[in-house]
Design a protein around this nucleic acid. Structure first.
Lengths: 262, 262
DNA sequence: TGACTTATGTGCGCTAGCACACCGAGCCAG
DNA sequence: CTGGCTCGGTGTGCTAGCGCACATAAGTCA
């Protein structure tokens, strides 16, 4: 979480889909306040019960939210990458949640300080609409995770996890140990080892010491459970359904216009 | 879902916590549009992929949201009773979700037509704030369900489920078969039978042919996993944290005032 | 009253995932 | 180049929950 860009990453807020979806005038208000930060692997972005000072828009980093049980066991319930944003609690009203955010893949993110978020949010324009849509997509992701935990095998869930991660990266390799994945899926490391072995034997992935390469993505999708597709589609629908042009610039116009009065 | 009250139930919108939390002026705008409806057991309120015409505020009914898998297996991911509302998609922006809503305990609810919801929502006053808070509480419930599905036994989950249901009723008995509970928890009927037997032998509950009586609630809480408490607390915090007085009547004032600028 | 339906109890064999334990190979620092 | 650490592979039991099959009990209705 070291502030400022050290080397020279891809310094472009447009890499984040949510930021990119905003209209030029909203962008011109917000972008001056954006700060580029580097998120190192396994950094703790946000601990259960604490309050957040910024909202983060990942560009090439991935952060996952996990719920931790009393006995220490944990499960990741959702993944945030360049398609979304970290810190919805900040505008949802509650100041904190019982979850924890961990950087799952190192990279960069732009962050926006709390006051600016609140201010823009309270203009009740594009940002509000976009955040609500995104929140709904998040709920879908969390819900699907719940069902997946109940009904699908570790094998399938590993595929789902790899795919979710891949989608948020621009390359085909992931830096994470099996132990780490185990924590994310809420299963034992050995279980991940078994599942990973199968995938490797099938020629779908290859890996060594914390570096996983996806070789056959199509196969991976076949082997995954439906949960991946459901989440992906739902997210796509929610965020494309409201293209920039249709957004209302003037808060006055937002409401009843849009809805077919059934 | 037969409209209008047939006999004479408890015709009072204040029984719903969310409606009750609104200030008199908002209530006076909304209440004339409320329609009391009866929700019969197992009625399908809302099928996956369809669009909702009303938002429902249960008084003494309970509705649960379930996600259904391709193979037909399903799991309930959250429960809505008099503490909340059914149909957040309506104001979140997406028109539908991949979930299904089933009446889990028969009773009454007030419903508000879509146009009125949208209109009030777009005033950006109390209702908006309240809905956002409630949505955050929902996310917590869904997330906790996900973790619970992974880490806890059927026994514990049955306790959690009974408690969640009890909290939304004014009496100590539930009308639901073990088969039905099985569908809700996403487990086999036999699994529920085993768990229920244990509870009965411990004198915690008694049941027969679809009627479950809770005898020792304290015990039930002890036997449940932590998930119940977490959800309950989080919901309480989110909804009391914003008492009526602190709500801003004038949309202009909503924003930056509230936040400690950290 | 007897046949039928629905809700619950139970047994059996099977598999997934767990707990624990131990090993080997790569990697790094002194 | 050596000792220690991390990551990954494997084996041996054990248990929870599943699928299936069947037995009973409690209502329901002709």
């Amino acid at each position: 979480m070291s502030p400022r860009s050290p080397a020279k990453p891809q310094p472009n807020p447009q890499q984040n889909h949510l930021l990119a979806a905003l209209s030029p005038d909203v962008q011109s208000r917000l972008f001056p306040h954006l700060e580029l930060v580097h998120l190192p692997l396994r950094a703790l972005m946000y601990e259960s019960g604490t309050s957040m000072s910024h909202v983060y828009f990942p560009t090439d980093s991935i952060v996952s939210l996990q719920y931790v049980m009393e006995n220490g066991a944990s499960t990741a319930i959702l993944v945030v990458g360049n398609e979304g944003l970290l810190g919805i609690t900040l505008f949802m009203g509650g100041e904190s949640t019982p979850s924890r955010s961990v950087v799952q893949s190192a990279g960069y993110a732009y962050r926006l300080p709390r006051p600016q978020v609140k201010e823009e949010f309270n203009r009740h324009g594009q940002l509000l609409l976009l955040m609500l849509r995104y929140t709904q997509a998040l709920i879908t992701q969390v819900a699907q995770t719940a069902v997946c935990n109940r009904h699908h095998s570790i094998d399938q869930q590993l595929c789902r996890w790899l795919l979710l991660s891949m989608d948020r990266l621009s390359h085909n390799h992931l830096t994470m140990t099996q132990e780490f994945i185990g924590h994310m899926l809420g299963v034992r490391r050995e279980g991940v080892t078994q599942a990973a072995l199968k995938l490797q034997q099938l020629g779908v992935i290859s890996y060594s010491r914390g570096l996983i390469k996806v070789i056959d993505r199509d196969q991976l999708e076949h082997l995954s459970c439906e949960c991946y597709e459901v989440v992906k589609k739902e997210t796509a629908i929610l965020l494309t359904y409201l293209p920039q042009r249709q957004l209302i610039k003037n808060p006055e116009d937002i409401p009843v216009v849009v809805l077919k009065t059934q």
